[in-house]
């Protein structure tokens, strides 16, 4: 896999992709009430504050849900591939790919961790793999 659809980047999401380029997984935290949110947006729905900062996620989480698309075939994916909805330790969720695992072994609740992969045209994406046991 060398090619991926290139994400659009807007004013509200620039920081996230800048973080990915620097191999950091960033989460928006409201400066008003401290609640985290993803995907990024300009206003906190809890307190309506426009002030926020980005915190760095540990990159660790667990599989909250998953899917293996088969059809329609996409030229730039090797099959099978796994789309995972990952619940990060910090509490927010993010959609990504789960790599480095036999699809039949994927279980909801399994621990995963982020890594970064570069594709054609300067695209860098945060992807996930099963948590590596530390020796």
């Amino acid at each position: 896999m060398t090619m991926r659809l290139k994400p659009s980047i807007g004013r509200d999401t620039q920081f996230f992709w800048d973080g990915v380029a620097a191999q950091k997984l960033l989460i928006q935290r409201c400066s008003g009430c401290g609640k985290l949110r993803h995907p990024p947006r300009p206003m906190c729905p809890h307190c309506n504050s426009l002030a926020w900062e980005a915190i760095e996620s540990s990159g660790k989480g667990e599989v909250y849900s998953f899917a293996m698309p088969h059809h329609p075939p996409l030229p730039f994916f090797e099959y099978p591939y796994i789309v995972a909805l990952v619940q990060l330790e910090e509490g927010t969720r993010i959609v990504s790919n789960l790599c480095g695992i036999d699809p039949s072994q994927v279980k909801i609740g399994m621990p995963v961790e982020v890594f970064y992969e570069s594709f054609d045209d300067g695209v860098v994406l945060p992807l996930f793999r099963p948590t590596q046991e530390k020796p």
């Binding site: 994400p7 999401t13 993010i94």
Partner: peptide, 13 residues
């Protein structure tokens, strides 16, 4: 690509 789809399309969703 609409911004909201940028959280999904690059991953094949």
């Amino acid at each position: 690509m609409p911004l909201w789809l940028s959280w999904y399309l690059p991953y094949g969703l």
